[in-house]
Structures are given as C-alpha cells and as structure tokens.
C-alpha cells in the first residue's frame, strides 16, 4: 500500500516535467499570438524593423535573429582553438596528471562565474582594449560581446571534448604508435576521427549556450534595434532585447518580445536535439 502510493508520487513527479514543458510551450505560443496574427509568422521573422513609438509601431525579429547568430557563431569560432587545446591538454597530452586536473579546475571555475560579472569585466576591462584596437569608438558591439561570449563558453566546449578525447581507447593509439606514428599524427588520424561525433556535439551544445546567453551580451552589444552592420557594428540579440525592453513593454510590444522568446526557445531546442542525435550516432559506432 505504502509502496503503491510512493510509486504513484514518483510517477506524478515525472508527469510534472511533461506538464511543465507543455505549459511552457502553451504559454509562449498563446502570449505571442497577437504578434503572429498581426504580422504572420514569416512576416514577423523576416522583418528587420523594430519601432516601438506608439504612432508608427512596428515589430520584426530579423535584426535580433541576425544579431544572435552573428555573435554566437563568431564566439564559437574564437572559442574553438582554445577549447580544443584545453581538451587535448587534459584528455591527451597530460591526461591524468596533476597539471591537467589543475587546468580543468581553473576552466571549471570559469563556468561558475555569473554572466553579469562577465558583463562587468567586459565593460570595464575588455572594452578599453577594444577601443584601443580601433574597432569602434565606444567599444560596444558584436566584436566585444563575441569575445566575452567566447570566454564564457570555453568551459562547456572543452569539458565535453576532453571527455570524448580521453575516451579514445588506448590500444587504438598504441596500434598507431607501433606503426611509427608521432603523437600529432595519432591525434589527427586516430583520436580526432574516433572522437569526432562527440567533439561536434560538444560544440553544438556550446553554441546553444552562446545563443541564449543574456546579461553579458546585454551589457556589451550596444543595444541598437538594427541588423548589425558587421563585426564592428552594434546590435541586439534575441535574449538581450528581451532583457532590455521587457520591463517597460505592454500590448503588441510585449507580445512581440514573447514571440522572440518563443523563436529563441525553438532554436535552442533544435540545437539540443541535433547535439543529442550526433551523440547517439557516436554510441552506435
């Protein structure tokens, strides 16, 4: 009797996840309906105009979608050489040594720093450097936020990649060494191809992080509601425009911000799904 009740409680708790997810999707969709009814789904996504002035009110998400993809991919690009090096350092060259565990502790600590502190650091310490480099006059923009974002996702990309690189079986590597290969050749021909799915999945997940990162980007990107003119330009991401304008929003603007949240949610969900599928393929090999 007691067991039955207990099992039911567990089942009910698991059911909560289902209800929670359904509720989230329902709330996001129902609260963005006003916007989609007004502009149509494609009309909203493909419009780069964002004008909250009551008289000329018009809302489109394109500027922010472009801004998000721009910053996230550029950040990913910057992050790759560093996180891959950390992964090789910890998972291959110095696997199991004290140095490696020190390096991974340091990188793990980086993951613990809150987004807003990254934003502060970016504003006070990185921005002057960006200005000195002559990227743009104020320092704010895609360039600055991508650099800070890249640092923020290094721990995510590197810890997963480390795991997959260190999982490459030793007897495989010894087989290659016994044929006369150097360490670099073993890494390139054996370790990387064997761990490739896992490494790719790690970077997809890191990309997902970068897409949804809010505070640091909000503080550094310049917050202009236009398609960024380039790396030197300013802009807004989907997350940063919500953080910036949600507080004062109502009516159609509120609905449009929630619609942007829905799009962001869908994009990150797809990214996670892809990462999961890539990893599943790995476990089959």
């Amino acid at each position: 009797m007691k067991d039955k009740l207990f099992r039911f409680v567990l089942f009910f708790a698991a059911l909560m996840i289902l209800l929670l997810s359904a509720g989230i999707i329902y709330s996001l969709v129902s609260r963005s309906l006003d916007t989609f009814n007004e502009y149509g789904v494609w009309g909203f996504i493909s419009n780069a105009e964002w004008d909250p002035r009551k008289a000329t009110e018009e809302y489109g998400a394109l500027s922010f979608i472009v801004g998000t993809l721009y910053t996230a991919f550029f950040a990913l690009l910057i992050c790759i050489p560093f996180s891959l090096s950390v992964a090789l350092f910890n998972g291959e060259y110095f696997k199991g040594t004290k140095v490696a565990s020190a390096v991974s502790s340091v990188v793990d600590l980086l993951a613990g720093i809150p987004s807003i502190v990254f934003g502060l650091w970016g504003f006070y310490s990185v921005r002057p450097i960006v200005i000195a480099l002559g990227v743009n006059a104020q320092g704010f923009g895609i360039f600055l936020s991508s650099i800070v974002l890249a640092i923020m996702i290094i721990p995510y990309a590197s810890s997963l990649s480390t795991e997959f690189i260190s999982m490459v079986p030793n007897n495989m590597k010894e087989g290659a060494y016994s044929l006369g290969a150097t360490r670099l050749e073993v890494i390139r021909r054996i370790s990387f191809p064997t761990a490739s799915s896992g490494i790719v999945a790690a970077y997809i997940l890191a990309l997902g992080r970068a897409l949804g990162e809010t505070m640091a980007v909000t503080m550094l990107i310049g917050n202009t509601d236009r398609i960024p003119s380039g790396l030197r330009g300013t802009g807004n991401t989907m997350a940063s425009v919500i953080a910036n304008q949600f507080g004062e929003a109502d009516g159609l603007k509120l609905s449009s911000l929630i619609a942007i949240g829905l799009i962001l949610f869908i994009i990150t969900a797809i990214i996670n799904l892809i990462a999961k599928m890539v990893m599943k393929r790995l476990s089959k090999v």
Partner: peptide
C-alpha cells in the same frame, strides 16, 4: 619492429584498405 596486440585494434574510422596502409599514411 612490428607489433600485434592482445585485443584486435583495427582503426575504426578507416576502411579495411586504409587500415592495411595505415602504417604508410601515419608515417606520411
């Protein structure tokens, strides 16, 4: 001095053909 291991360890990412030639390709 060639070596054969206890566990068969063909390189899983290479074809049979490439496995035979692995010594050459690994040595550039």
């Amino acid at each position: 001095v060639g070596m054969v291991f206890q566990q068969p360890n063909p390189f899983p990412t290479m074809s049979i053909y490439d496995n035979v030639l692995a010594g050459y390709s690994l040595n550039g």
